[in-house]
Simulated assay, not measured.
Amino acid sequence: MHSETDRADRSEAVFLDRARAYAQDIPIDVDLDAIQWTVSHRARRRAGSCRYDSDSGAVTVRLAWDAYREHGWDEMAAVIRHELVHAWEFQQFGESGHGARFRDKADEIDAPRHCSPFSEPRLRLVCTAEDCDWSADRFRASVTVTEPNTRRCGVCGARYRVEHVATGRSWRTNEGYEQARKQIGDEW
């Protein structure tokens, strides 16, 4: 008899095997043998990521399991193409971004510039200026969320407030964050 963990591990292994095999068919000059493929259970915003160790030259492509479960194989195939463009840039140039070089290579292999979100944000930053409609979604309690009074709007430079999406509670200071976190409790 196999445990739930054994089945999940096998499913992830099958998914990663499929990702590696799919990458072989993408017409991009990447040393696939030099790429490590992993699954992330923590990712909430990015369906994939590509990390580069400049000391060793190692490239790791991490694919979000929840994104795969939410969107399925076709969407993840697009994510894999996207991450392969990053791997190509890292291997060829030692750096990667989403600039013109990335866009040109992504167009060659039909890779999206951005990937679809697969989870709802927990938090939202909202500008407090009346004439500014800037907002930004957040998934974790970063310094931007926990100490909003030390940061400013990304468009107009005004202060912003942080909203907890599920409860509607908001704050503008670290003290406000601490209070909201206590009040929200298990719903956080």
Rank of each mutant, 00 (worst) to 15 (best):
T60W: 01
R44N: 10
A77W: 07
W65G: 02
V14N: 10
Q36D: 14
W37F: 04
V30T: 09
A23Y: 04
S54C: 03
D17S: 13
A58D: 15
T60L: 12
A43W: 11
Y22T: 13
E75Q: 11
A34H: 02
H41E: 07
V30H: 11
F15D: 09
R20K: 12
V14I: 12
S49G: 15
D33E: 06
R20Y: 06
I26P: 00
A21C: 06
P27G: 05
V59R: 05
Q36H: 12
Y68R: 06
E70I: 11
D17W: 05
T60N: 04
M76S: 04
M76L: 12
R51M: 15
L32A: 01
W73A: 05
S40M: 09
A19Q: 01
R18F: 06
W73C: 05
F15L: 12
I28M: 07
A58W: 14
D55C: 04
D25Q: 05
F15K: 03
D31K: 03
R69Y: 07
A64S: 07
C50P: 00
Y68M: 11
W65I: 00
D55E: 14
T60P: 06
R62P: 12
H71E: 00
L63W: 02
M76Q: 07
W65R: 14
V30A: 03
R62C: 14
R44E: 14
I35K: 04
E75D: 11
I28V: 08
V30F: 01
A34W: 00
D74F: 10
G72W: 09
H71T: 04
R69M: 13
D31C: 03
A34Y: 02
V39A: 03
E75A: 13
E75V: 02
R46D: 03
S56V: 10
A47V: 02
Y68G: 02
R18M: 06
S49W: 01
V14C: 08
R51Q: 10
W37Q: 01
Q24R: 12
D53M: 08
V61P: 01
I35L: 11
V59P: 10
V14G: 07
T60H: 00
W65Y: 15
R51A: 03
R46Q: 11
D53K: 01
R42P: 08
